[in-house]
Write a protein that binds this DNA or RNA. Structure first.
Length: 469
RNA sequence: GGUGGGUUGGCGGAGAGGUUACGCACCGGAUUGCAAAUCCGUGAAGACCGGUUCGAUUCCGGUACCCACCUCCA
């Protein structure tokens, strides 16, 4: 069996991956807060974990992997959006407005991630479905002396957990010295964080031993991972920005609630996304969602390819140039594998690259080499390993039947003109193809065509009409 | 101020203590009515300063610059 190696944030090393139970490899990815469309940065951990899950299933078997990704549907941003709709005159109750907002956002999220070829996780728990478990875990943490109640809040006592800060390499004292922590008067220590907080009447809330309230952000992942994967599982991940405080706090909660379990063995964090060399932000005007790109005609497969062409632990720069290059490569490859059945297994070079800390860029290089050798079957099987060249994701690269028929007619006319040595006429058709976004290649076995990025069906029709004159 | 990451050829982007990464672009050749595509081939690199070593772009130390996190954030 091949050996997978992964860089573990906890150990700061690339370690051989050894599952707790090879028959049930368990992963948890921190999912989105469902208050708005997913932006491009949200897609990165999804694609990294998608690749990881595909690799784990390849190595350990399709049924031997359990992949959990949550939806955070308790959040002040969701509440704010619901309140905005209420103020705007909605007749629905606040609870109904919140449900409406989260439902539609989850629908968008599924549609957008599906478009990128990301497999759905085995479980997609919502925070609101696990309030009971969160309350129970909070109660347990108080009983074990790791949390305390103060003014309707329940706070985690960071000083009760000596390991606090280990994941992110910080010490509580250093962080306090940084003087950027919010000091609430009822906290024993400025770094203590909220497990439960009171809700006013205009906010969603649940009954608890500490009154009507709602959970803090971090407790949901501790409660849901324990419920679905158990207190000890294999891999936990997300963006590097979650390393602190979110994952640090999850570790504190889970390890204190289940002292012997160990929580997640491997912590996997992806670096952040940039756009044209700059941080993606609303203020810089370079902020966009996955849907924005899809609507602009950038195929999901192209987004996926660009994302995978940079190693997950490096900052990834989204540029128009990369998208154009990716599109050209995918068109060429799709042409190469058209009508070919995939080989029985992916190329060893591709598996080796992926096993080496998910070296997707190295795997893509190996795909290039397969393509250069003309090994279409190997290319197809190996690309499938990366979720590329999938049969159901190629419609963007294909012409409709009508366009195909028109192109065939024009190709026949050009051939006729060339036979008659009427090169002016033949070249006019060729130029027309180029203008319409149809790429024609004259090969030894006759002309082959494909669609270029700017394909224009109108221009093609006009070309057919012009030929009649 | 604290923590972590980065700096590779024209551009993108990997691995490896010594042997071509790979892709795009460029250049030369084959091919073509001329092209495009394709094929063959050439060239081009590792921020800076030290150290270890027979040998470092790869390991170690320092400097500079960049980025992220430390506050909701993937």
């Amino acid at each position: 069996m091949v050996q997978i190696r992964l860089t573990n944030t906890r150990t700061r090393r690339k370690d051989p991956f050894a599952p707790i139970d090879p028959a049930d490899v368990r992963l948890y990815l921190c999912g989105p807060t469902v208050y708005d469309r997913a932006h491009l940065g949200n897609a990165r951990p999804v694609l990294v974990f998608d690749l990881l899950v595909r690799l784990l299933r390849h190595v350990y078997g399709d049924r031997a992997v359990t992949y959990v990704r949550n939806f955070t549907d308790v959040d002040d941003k969701i509440n704010a959006e619901a309140q905005r709709r209420k103020i705007a005159g909605s007749a629905l109750s606040l609870e109904a407005l919140i449900a409406e907002r989260t439902e539609e956002t989850i629908g968008w999220y599924h549609a957008d991630m599906d478009a990128l070829g990301a497999l759905r996780p085995d479980h997609e728990p919502r925070a609101t479905e696990y309030i009971v478990q969160m309350v129970e875990m909070t109660r347990d943490l108080i009983a074990k002396g790791h949390a305390y109640e103060a003014e309707g809040h329940v706070l985690f006592d960071v000083r009760s957990f000596p390991e606090y800060g280990k994941l992110s390499g910080r010490s509580v004292d250093d962080m306090i010295a940084g003087a950027r922590v919010e000091v609430a008067p009822f906290k024993r220590d400025p770094m203590d964080f909220v497990l439960w907080k009171p809700s006013s009447d205009d906010l969603p809330g649940w009954d608890s031993p500490w009154g009507r309230g709602r959970p803090g952000w971090h407790i949901e992942c501790s409660a849901m991972s324990a419920a679905l994967l158990g207190p000890h599982f294999d891999i936990h991940g997300g963006g590097i920005d979650l390393q602190f405080p979110h994952h640090e706090n999850e570790i504190a909660q889970s390890c204190c609630a289940h002292p012997q379990a160990g929580f997640a063995n491997v912590w996997l964090h992806n670096e952040m996304l940039q756009v044209e060399g700059k941080k993606m932000s609303k203020s810089l005007g370079n902020f966009f969602t996955v849907r924005d790109l899809l609507d602009r005609g950038v195929p999901g497969e192209v987004i996926r390819f660009v994302m995978l062409s940079t190693h997950y632990r490096k900052p990834m720069d989204w540029t128009e140039a990369k998208a154009a290059e990716a599109e050209a490569v995918l068109r060429r490859w799709r042409g190469l594998v058209a009508g070919i059945e995939p080989a029985p297994s992916p190329a060893p070079a591709v598996i080796d690259a992926l096993c080496d800390d998910l070296n997707s860029a190295g795997a893509i290089a190996a795909l290039h080499e397969l393509a250069a050798k003309g090994d279409g079957a190997g290319l197809l099987a190996s690309a499938h390993m990366l979720g590329l060249l999938m049969p159901d994701m190629g419609s963007w690269a294909e012409a409709g039947d009508a366009a195909a028929a028109q192109i065939e007619v024009l190709l026949a006319a050009r051939l006729e003109a060339r036979k008659a040595r009427d090169f002016a006429r033949a070249d006019a058709i060729r130029d027309g193809f180029a203008a319409a976004g149809v790429e024609v290649k004259d090969t030894a076995s006759g002309p082959q065509w494909s669609l270029a990025p700017g394909f224009d069906p109108e221009a093609l029709s006009a070309l057919v009409r012009a030929r009649g004159r």
